[in-house]
């Protein structure tokens, strides 16, 4: 019983991390009023690029770096289309997302079937030896902890800093932000790049730490879940993070249930994390006032300078 609990809790943290990175990035992007639907493609590109680099050069760190840059570049394509050429955000997001999936298949093809050494756990000294808690919390790799730090940073920046105010202002009323002198397009561009880079990191975590291997279709909708979490977490960092962990927990639960051999169709079990995460988030985020205060009013609306 304890073993199962440890398996679920420790596994939850690992399973949540890829989505956590992608969702935190997308949260910042959406807060500036841009809807980036290409997260799935960016995660896949990051995952494939990271794995390819890591197998060839035998360096996970280099893998993460290349994943961040390649998904970031893909997000530059999206940002250029939507912010400079004023393309529709939904259509451009879908197109770039499909492009990303294609690119990932191309990069990853040669490396299918290989495996690599997963990331080493951080050495927390005696903390790792604490019974139960030590194995749940203190036997993970550094990227997972970086993910937790990312929640704190995004939460802090969005709620406690001037930068957060500017991001919120740009997402709510770009015309007004422009009128008081903020470079709306530049701010959105940088946010989209950040979002892309984080999605790439999330993808890289999948192939370098979580699985660790590459196969086409490996991302399996996690990018879409990240987009959904941002919306159903009503654009608040802690709710979005909670959603990511919820998703991780339910997918681990699903594995345990499958292990028990209960007669539930596997399709139902595989769908469970997606469905339950969203249902739970919708139920806990019903407060209309909070949604009103946190949703970026100009989300998905193309902004152009008046002339």
């Amino acid at each position: 019983m304890t073993e199962t609990l440890i398996f679920i809790c420790a596994g939850t943290m690992a399973a949540a991390t890829p989505i956590l990175f992608a969702a935190m990035g997308e949260l910042v992007v959406e807060r500036t009023g841009v809807l980036n639907l290409s997260i799935e493609g960016m995660m896949a590109t990051g995952a494939a690029a990271a794995f390819a680099v890591a197998t060839v050069y035998e360096s996970s760190l280099l893998g993460f770096a290349v994943a961040t840059i390649s998904a970031g570049l893909l997000s530059v394509v999206f940002a250029t289309l939507t912010l400079i050429f004023l393309a529709n955000q939904v259509a451009a997001g879908l197109a770039v997302g499909i492009l990303g999936l294609g690119v990932s298949a191309l990069i990853g093809k040669k490396h299918e079937g290989f495996t690599i050494e997963p990331l080493k756990s951080v050495d927390w000294g005696f903390l790792s030896d604490i019974p139960v808690v030590g194995r749940i919390l203190f036997q993970h790799d550094f990227v997972l902890y970086a993910g937790i730090l990312l929640i704190a940073i995004v939460w802090f920046v969005l709620t406690r800093t001037k930068l957060g105010l500017i991001i919120k202002a740009v997402g709510e009323a770009p015309e007004a932000a422009h009128a008081i002198g903020y470079p709306v397009i530049l701010i959105r561009f940088l946010a989209v790049f950040f979002g892309g880079a984080m999605a790439g990191l999330g993808g890289a975590y999948l192939t370098l730490a979580y699985t660790p291997l590459w196969a086409e279709g490996l991302v399996a909708g996690r990018g879409w879940i990240a987009v959904a979490l941002v919306v159903f977490g009503s654009w608040r960092a802690h709710r979005v993070a909670l959603g990511a962990y919820l998703f991780g927990a339910i997918s681990l639960l699903e594995l345990s249930i499958q292990g028990l051999g209960l007669a539930i169709p596997s399709q139902v079990l595989s769908a469970a994390p997606y469905v339950m995460t969203i249902v739970i988030l919708v139920l806990i985020s019903r407060d209309a006032r909070q949604i009103r205060l946190n949703s970026p009013a100009s989300l998905g609306v193309t902004y152009r300078h008046q002339s």
Partner: peptide
């Protein structure tokens, strides 16, 4: 400039709005 159609951010507080400028 004080605009006729105001350039304020609705979901921010008065002080936050002003701190942006």
């Amino acid at each position: 400039m004080v605009f006729q159609h105001f350039s304020l951010f609705e979901t921010l507080t008065v002080a936050q709005n002003i701190s942006l400028a």
